[in-house]
Each structure stands twice: as C-alpha cells, then as structure tokens.
C-alpha cells in the first residue's frame, strides 16, 4: 500500500521525504551515493554560505564561484567529518576559511580607488549616499580584518551569515554564552575603529 502511494506520488514525494530528513540523515544518504541528498543539503544551507561569502568578499561575481567551491570541498571530503559533528558547523568552517583568504585580497583592492570615488562624487552629486555607504562598508571590512581571529570568525558568522549563536558556538568550538561575550567585545572594538570613539 505504501509502496503504491509512493509510486503514484512520484519524484516529488521522494524529494519531500528527503527534505524532512535532518542533516545527518542526508549526509548518510549522500555517502551511500544518493545525489539528491547532496542537492538537498546544498539547498538547505546555500543561503547562509552565500551570505557569508558575498558579504566577506563584497563581490557578487565571485560569490557564486566560492560558494560552489565550499560545498564541493565539504561534500567530497566527508571522511574528515567524524563522529557526530554537525554538517553545518563543518560547512561554515570551510566557508570561513575560503571567504577569508579571498576577502583579504579584495579589500586591499577596495581600499585603493579613493580618487575614483572622489571623481564619481564630483561628477554625480546624487551618488553621495551610495558612495558614503560603500566607504562605510570598506571601513567596516577593513576594521573587521584587524580583529583577533576568533572575534573575526564570530562577528562574520553573526553579522554576515546571520547564524544563531548556538550554531556559531558549535562552529568555533565554544559555548553560546562565550560566543556572545566575544561578539560583544568585538563590536566594541569595531565601534572604536569605525566611529573613532570609545
């Protein structure tokens, strides 16, 4: 009876069944060779990874590319995901490593064209707000790079990836309360650097 109803419902029902599984179940299915499980994992986590990568690098044209690399590395190196470690934490650690190394080069490039921005401002006065916003983003990104690595990871996971603190704690290997305290300290440091006040 149940086989018959699945057969009638077709691939859509199979996909719904996959969607209802948790990450660990999907990882097991992908390890057994089910490609749809990999696709479901990507759909489930792609927004978070993409947000982190895009906001870390500030470059939409490379965000797709890096997001693909992050998932490929995670899905094809699952033998390194041991025990009951969560797939999401593993994925976000890879995403942090990938987006940081690319972001460093990019933000150096972003700081360079000050004259170009000044010229644009004089040629198109209406662009002031956009230019100011862009400048502020650059300042924030530059200030972020000066934070200690642990603070930087936590701020990027919260502000850029918009992860809940529980997941952030799992990713960086700490408690939820400690992640919040680190985040609070980091925001205070960022304030001093971006706004120039204590």
């Amino acid at each position: 009876m149940s086989k018959r109803s699945v057969a009638i419902a077709g691939p859509r029902a199979d996909l719904d069944e996959l969607e209802s599984r948790d990450d660990a179940g999907l990882v097991r299915a992908w390890r057994r060779g089910d490609g749809r499980a990999a696709e479901t994992l990507v759909r489930r986590h792609q927004k978070t990874v993409y947000r982190l990568v895009l906001r870390s690098t500030g470059d939409p044209s490379t965000a797709d590319d890096i997001t693909q690399k992050v998932f490929l590395k995670a899905l094809t190196n699952l033998e390194q995901l041991k025990g009951d470690r969560a797939f999401q934490s593993w994925l976000m650690r890879i995403a942090l490593n990938f987006s940081r190394s690319r972001g460093r080069g990019l933000s150096r490039w972003l700081r360079a064209p000050a004259e170009a921005l000044a010229r644009l401002r004089s040629e198109s006065p209406g662009q002031d707000e956009i230019i100011d916003k862009s400048r502020m983003s650059q300042r924030i990104r530059a200030a972020m790079e000066k934070l200690p690595k642990r603070q930087q990871r936590i701020v990027r996971l919260r502000l850029y990836a918009e992860l809940p603190f529980k997941s952030i704690a799992d990713t960086v290997g700490t408690t939820e309360a400690s992640a919040k305290v680190t985040y609070h300290n980091a925001i205070q440091t960022l304030r001093r650097q971006v706004r120039g006040r204590a």
Binding site: R36, R51, I140, L159
Partner: peptide
Amino acid sequence: LLKPDPSPVPGPWLAKSIR
C-alpha cells in the same frame, strides 16, 4: 551601523550544479 545590506539569494541552478 554594522548591519550589512540585504543579501541576494543564490540562483536555483546552484544546487543542481554543485550536485
């Protein structure tokens, strides 16, 4: 002040391509 702009979402092709 630090809140970034809303992020666009990745295209629907991405999951299939990665798979």
